[in-house]
Design a protein around this nucleic acid. Structure first.
Lengths: 176, 176
DNA sequence: GTCTATATTTGGATAGAC
DNA sequence: GTCTATCCAAATATAGAC
């Protein structure tokens, strides 16, 4: 298939941006078109409706998840450090997309949760393989969720080294 | 001062409800008035504008935070178990209010973050006193944030016992 | 204190020119 | 493929009756 027109990508980037920084309420077609540098008519040529725009963003995130999980599994620092580090990585495309879709899922588009659940499961699987103990893996992903929660509220990220030290302690301590 | 009219409380409860279940977008004056069983005019008598309604909810949460922190510090199970348990307590008034205000803070009312930051600091202080190690306390509050994140997306809460066991392990292991 | 209009603005979507 | 113009519905807010 032909490469998707650049305008489509610009629209999705603008939509993401507004969702993350100002929330679902502010992500109107007018605002998205403005930020993308196209007219509302132009936007609606690429995405026939607001629902189609939402679907476009969810599909884009789904693709990014596949790539991110592969990167995570191949990361030299290991899956745990990769996950915890990138959870507050506000500038990376993947994390912005994740936060944007979370915004939609909490709001008027609950079906967007599917993509988020997929990411959660993939993360848990990869972390479980790395740390062995499934309970520790679940806790690590929960910590990552906590970091996302704070990031979405604009708070400062926690110290990565501190968290890794705690996870190391969990991993090296035998269960009761 | 005289007791606040019951209608005020009903309006705040309705606002909270809609924010938590359907998001900021759906929390229109019409929808809130409907759910509270009053007319839009009636609502606007008590809260002169949407901003005033938001301020009312933030102030209400601020009061609830004070009470919750006192309960947490006095909890027989201890602050850690109390915090982690109530983080997925979708039915309690405090937690619904917290999620509702988080919804506002992520959206068009960033000043609502003040109340959330207050809660976060109070939780961290109380947990630090209980576990000793500030790093462990920060991790516990991060786990609690993660649970809130999931709850706000409608996912099932994690196993409390599993988390407490992990925290116990952290507490009883000397730092490297 | 609470209601029923009603004014004003904004958001989503269509039609049709270029 | 992108724009302008326009329609319709929804959202905030006001005025004034009860």
């Amino acid at each position: 298939m032909p490469p998707p027109p650049a305008a489509r990508a610009k629209v999705l980037a603008a939509f993401t941006e507004i969702l993350v920084t100002t929330g679902e309420r502010a992500a109107t077609l007018d605002a998205v078109a403005d930020r993308a540098g196209v007219s509302k008519g132009g936007l609606l040529y690429h995405f026939g409706s607001k629902d189609a725009l939402v679907d476009g963003l969810v599909e884009h995130l789904t693709e990014l998840i596949t790539a991110d999980v592969a990167t995570m599994r191949a990361a030299p620092e290991g899956p745990v450090a990769y996950l915890l580090r990138t959870s507050s990585d506000v500038d990376a495309e993947f994390d912005r997309s994740y936060l944007a879709v979370a915004e939609l899922a909490r709001g008027a588009y609950p079906h967007a949760r599917g993509a988020l659940d997929t990411a959660e499961r993939a993360w848990t699987d990869a972390v479980t393989e790395a740390v062995g103990d499934p309970a520790v893996a679940r806790a690590v992903v929960l910590l990552s969720d906590g970091i996302y929660h704070r990031t979405s509220l604009g708070a400062a990220p926690p110290e990565l080294d501190e968290l890794l030290e705690l996870v190391r302690r969990l991993g090296s301590t035998p269960a009761a």
